[in-house]
Design a protein around this nucleic acid. Structure first.
Length: 434
DNA sequence: TCTGGGGTCCTAGGACCC
DNA sequence: TCTGGGGTCCTAGGACCC
């Protein structure tokens, strides 16, 4: 029998709190918490803080009493520090295994050699702790979903297992599944847990033996994939190279709500600048943009309005001023007076690489007429250059859409099908025959 | 009164094409 | 002129993750 692939999930314990402790060892054994960006929520808790009943994600103001009474140390988050610590941990892991996927700032999946056992995992754990000061837990299984589950068990039974648990080597793995509520599975949130409960599925074990077609009907492909992963059939690959970024977002909540368009514009300008800078840093160009507004969702007594709107940009860009023009237009379209806005943000979407971007159809757009593309003109021009009226490259442009990328796709498809002259570079299209 | 930010993937439904 | 099946592509919004 071919042994199943072994996958480990390494997860740093209370990562942000652990980082703070590395730089201030006096905090060992004391209750501490780390706050979100605006110091609004508690996003990391030490074991001692968890013991005090402080929940994950709790608003700080709700916990002030407990914090004061128990002398809990409170930290604003310091992402530079955490990023740096994360890199150190990951580089140690990378040296020990054939392949690694860094899944988040404090977690990574490892591809393990077949002979990798719990002893080796413990040694790895010690090494990370000794070299970086960060304690981790390691779960081992045959699929990513099960590795997550094994890690959860390792964490829960840290005292007993030493923070390492190998599901593939456990005498009764189904007992662990039976002990895991569906909500504890990776990918099952509140909503899906409820839906599963409606099907009388409350544990990972019940999920494992559920009817696949029923799962498919009620949870779609996501559910079916989880079902397979639970049965040891790997559906989720190890992604060593992170896929290209799809979008970049910048948003913030306001300390106090804003009502006027001018205030919102100012806030948005900030976000556009930050997002554009990030895009430049990645060496990318944005071809689309989304802008959104949110009222305070916690104020049920106030009217709610959370619009969002998207647009395709005139041309791919990462220039702040250019982006701001579009952002302002979009904001004006969704802005309604009379609401108390609590948050706004911008997302730059459909990013393309600066290097790979070849100006093509975009050059045919008339910048004097924002948002307008003369489809017929482009079609005629392409056909004219190819010079065969009986067999035009494009017989009809896709109607009812002004999406440039769509047009580009239509062009490409047809060109491939019909033309020996196919090229993605507009400038290389042959001139029309005399 | 105070309650984060930045992501990904999937689906439903509309518009359009052949 | 009417009708249907089989597609693609897009947007908005839901759900989830860390």
């Amino acid at each position: 029998m071919i042994p199943l692939a072994k996958i480990a999930l390494v997860d740093c314990n209370n990562f942000f709190c652990s980082c703070e402790r590395v730089f201030n060892p006096a905090l060992q054994g004391k209750p501490i918490v780390v706050l979100s960006n605006n110091d609004g929520c508690i996003i990391s808790r030490s074991e001692e803080a968890k013991g005090l009943g402080i929940p994950m994600g709790a608003p700080l103001h709700e916990q002030q009493e407990v914090i004061r009474k128990n002398n809990v140390q409170v930290f604003s988050s310091n992402y530079t520090l955490y990023g740096d610590m994360s890199a150190r941990v990951m580089s140690i892991l990378r040296e020990e295994v054939p392949a690694i996927e860094v899944y988040s700032i404090d977690e990574s999946f490892l591809q393990l050699p077949h002979n990798f056992d719990e002893e080796m995992a413990r040694a790895l754990r010690s090494k990370v702790l000794q070299w970086t000061g960060i304690p981790v837990c390691i779960g081992i299984a045959s699929t990513k979903l099960l590795a997550k589950l094994a890690n959860r068990h390792a964490k829960k039974t840290k005292e007993l297992t030493g923070g390492v648990f190998d599901l593939t080597n456990y005498w009764n793995p189904e007992a662990i599944l039976a002990d895991t509520p569906t909500g504890g599975l990776w990918g099952v949130g509140k909503n899906l847990a409820q839906r599963l409960e409606g099907m009388h599925i409350t544990t990972a074990l019940e999920f494992k033996y559920a009817d696949p077609s029923a799962i498919r009907r009620s949870m779609g492909v996501v559910g079916e994939r989880m079902l397979r992963e639970l049965n040891g059939i790997g559906c989720l690959e190890l992604e060593e190279v992170p896929p290209d970024r799809k979008g970049v977002m910048a948003s913030r909540s306001f300390g106090s709500p804003m009502e006027s368009l001018e205030e919102l514009e100012e806030a948005l300008a900030n976000h556009v600048a930050r997002a554009a800078e990030k895009v430049r840093r990645f060496g990318l160009l944005a071809t689309g943009m989304e802008v959104f507004l949110r009222t305070n969702r916690f104020r049920k007594d106030q009217p709610q309005y959370s619009p969002s709107i998207g647009a395709t940009l005139e041309r791919p860009t990462h220039a702040t001023a250019e982006l701001m023009t579009t952002a302002r237009t979009l904001l004006q379209r969704i802005y309604r007076p009379g609401y108390r806005y609590k948050k706004t943000g911008v997302q730059l979407t459909n990013l393309v690489s600066e290097e790979e971007y070849q100006p093509g159809l975009f050059d045919l757009l008339d910048p004097a007429i924002p948002g307008r593309i003369d489809v017929d003109k482009i079609v005629d021009e392409i056909n004219r250059r190819l010079g065969d009226p009986k067999n035009p490259v494009i017989t009809r442009a896709s109607q009812g859409t002004d999406r440039r990328d769509n047009l580009g796709k239509a062009w490409k498809m047809r060109a491939e099908r019909h033309s020996p002259h196919y090229t993605t570079d507009w400038n290389q299209l042959p001139e029309a025959k005399a």
